[in-house]
Amino acid sequence: MNEKVKVTNTTILSNNWYTLKKVTFDYLKKNGQWQTQHREAYDRGNGATILLYNKNLKTVVLTRQFRLPTYLNGNETGMLIEACAGLLDRDNPEDCIRRETEEETGYKISHVQKVFEAYMSPGSVTEILYFFVAEYTKDMKIIAGGGLEHDQEDIEVMELPFNEALSMVDSGTIKDAKTIMLLQYAQLHKLL
């Protein structure tokens, strides 16, 4: 525990989809004075994301789906191209990403490699995201993918040349941070 932080009050503002809390805390500043601060924190649980890549074909598998927050922030269609991802729920990160990969992309993978973990929006969201990469081959495709109907998912599976995906980052077509990070990881580590 950080001795410079004393939480004095927590109020739940919303517990509809995930949990939004208003937290009042005292923070000990460098000058030795305590300061009372108020912040809101959105707790949606932790998640995992993966970049599927094929060395022989030099391709990656990404998804495209509607994301309301991007639509509300000016994305005209609300559609976002992303690496496959999902919330851990009660799973460990490896089991989660294997399940999400099959549900969203239709590929059944067994070996995944964790490459790093990161907070994506630490000023307001509690989530830590576990990043993975995995090789795929055509014979690993066992179902169509597209997500689960009961989760209201309507996901398009995209297999793209790796260089085209990188160009989509440069052009601004891919704007999702986790996807950009995984594509850059693949480039830096010469996975393809």
Rank of each mutant, 00 (worst) to 15 (best):
E3Q: 13
V5N: 07
V5Y: 09
T11A: 06
K21G: 03
V23E: 07
V23F: 04
Y27E: 11
L28P: 03
Q33W: 00
Q35H: 13
T36M: 01
T36K: 13
R39S: 14
E40R: 07
E40W: 02
A41F: 14
D43M: 06
L51M: 03
Y53V: 01
L57V: 00
L57M: 09
L57G: 09
K58S: 11
T59R: 05
T59S: 06
V60P: 02
V60E: 00
T63W: 04
R64F: 03
F66M: 08
L68C: 01
Y71G: 03
N73K: 12
G74Q: 07
E76A: 12
E76D: 10
M79S: 00
I81P: 04
C84W: 00
C84T: 15
D95L: 04
C96N: 10
R99M: 02
R99Y: 07
T101E: 03
T101A: 06
E102V: 07
E103A: 12
T105W: 05
Y107G: 05
I109L: 07
S110C: 03
Y119V: 03
M120I: 09
S121F: 03
S124Y: 10
Y130E: 04
F131K: 11
E135W: 01
Y136P: 04
K138F: 09
D139W: 09
K141Q: 13
A144L: 14
G145M: 13
L148G: 12
L148E: 15
E149V: 13
Q152V: 11
I155C: 08
P161R: 06
N163W: 02
N163S: 14
E164N: 11
A165V: 11
S167P: 00
S167H: 09
V169A: 07
S171K: 09
T173I: 15
A177C: 09
I180M: 11
L182S: 05
Q184D: 13
Q187C: 10
Q187D: 08
L188D: 14
H189E: 02
K190E: 11
L191Q: 00
